[in-house]
Design a protein around this nucleic acid. Structure first.
Lengths: 236, 236
DNA sequence: CGGACCGTTCGGCCGCCGCCGAAGTGTCCC
DNA sequence: GGGACACTTCGGCGGCGGCCGAACGGTCCG
């Protein structure tokens, strides 16, 4: 028996964590960046609580999830932005033919709300995210010609809008995230997260229900138009 | 029985292709960007030809590999640059603690040659790739401050060096690829591929044996120094 | 034509893993 | 204290999937 390449072993082990429909459903759900309880995820995935408990333990042990125990609850969330990006990257590869078809009126409207605007871990996605990214690009604040980066005027724009861009760790300031509904890149990274956070803090957007979908408020409609010329009302 | 989210199903199926040590070893080997025969991969992975045949069929069916039959040979390679990127991304997540420890003198020298310079699908990696990326950045040809993109002078530099940058499809001009030995970003994307191709065509580098490792020639040493100020002799 | 070689198909074996329900532990709240 | 609740552990079941060797089909070459 030959000794095997440890990198292959590690890769297989990591991929194995994703290679189960129930765990995959959990990871996708957790892409909203929030912390879920074990029972919420069990209901979401449609399996027994005992089954899900074991899945969570594996995901935590594998470093994909961080957990936080509070009383009788076990909250889990994606471990960090790098893990979130990995989930996004994998999910983006899948999408090409895999459109999500709604199965009920309620899901249908929830689905179209998701397609209109949502968060993707910590930044804006959906048509809203893309519209913002396009607007930034059209105004010369972001450039995608020779890579993907904020321009000097782009950095100044964030400052003037009062949106702080604090670099922490090695996370890139701007990064492209491929949207799984639109198949187009949108702004992620520190700048994407800061913009999303500001939009929520300033009341430009509010979360719909407890899901990932977000809705643009009247104030947000004004702000997006004034600052970027984005007609959010035309997004649907 | 409830109907499941098709995205979770697809994600699990995709990840399942990576979630086997033998298939993972194949994918990592194929990161050299070349086409391998089934028996070469079987020997590399240490399994029977029959076993590997089935693995290849699954990988091809899953869209990860492209195959080309020639006579009695079955050549396979990674399907495209996006797949290569996905393999890189997953492998990069694994690396943190997983250093590849050499098991023999031959592997040891091959390993250090790999760490010194190699190709990563279609661009330069290893310490050579990082040195080139750092030099481009230090000279203001590439900027990583607000994202990852070539600067205007960077685009001009490629032109003046006679390295064509033909955009084709949606592949980004410049993209960061995280090196699994050095844990630092290096240039990938169209520019990275063009630079690597030029280095091989112009004889700056030659492949060592039939593996991914590359060696800088005397002419290359001169060229890298003249064009970028990189002291390739100091790489080890 | 015959032998060497590459790859594939098939049957069978074995182990892993996802699933559940039942029972147990700990927490919260009345 | 007692009951409801969130989660975990355990045993057992069933299926999937990776592995091999043997037999077979195709291709190349002498």
């Amino acid at each position: 028996m030959t000794t095997r390449d440890p990198r292959a072993t590690g890769l297989a082990r990591l991929a194995g964590l994703f290679a189960d429909e129930t765990r995959a459903a959990c990871l996708l759900a957790l892409l909203d960046g929030r912390a879920w309880t074990a029972s919420e995820l069990a209901r979401h995935a449609g399996v027994a609580a005992s089954t899900l408990s074991e899945h969570l333990s594996r995901l935590v042990a594998g470093g994909l999830l961080a957990e936080e125990r509070q009383g009788r609850h076990r909250y889990v969330r994606l471990a960090d932005a790098r893990i979130a990006q990995l989930v996004e990257d994998l999910a983006a590869q899948v999408a090409p033919g895999t459109a999500v078809r709604p199965r009920s009126l309620r899901e249908s409207s929830a689905g179209s709300a998701m397609a209109r605007g949502r968060t993707c871990y910590d930044h804006l996605a959906g048509r809203l995210g893309i519209a913002v990214t396009d607007a930034l690009t059209a105004r010369g604040l972001l450039q995608q010609e020779t890579g993907f980066a904020l321009t000097d005027t782009g950095v100044a724009w964030f400052a003037s809008a009062g949106i702080g861009l604090e670099r922490r760790g090695r996370r890139p300031l701007a990064r492209a995230c491929l949207d799984w509904t639109e198949r187009r890149p949108h702004l992620a990274g520190v700048a994407g997260a800061a913009l999303c956070r500001h939009a929520l803090d300033a009341g430009w957007c509010v979360r719909i229900g407890s899901e990932r979908a977000v809705k643009v408020t009247a104030a947000g409609e004004q702000a997006f138009f004034d600052l970027l010329g984005v007609e959010t009302a035309a997004l649907l």
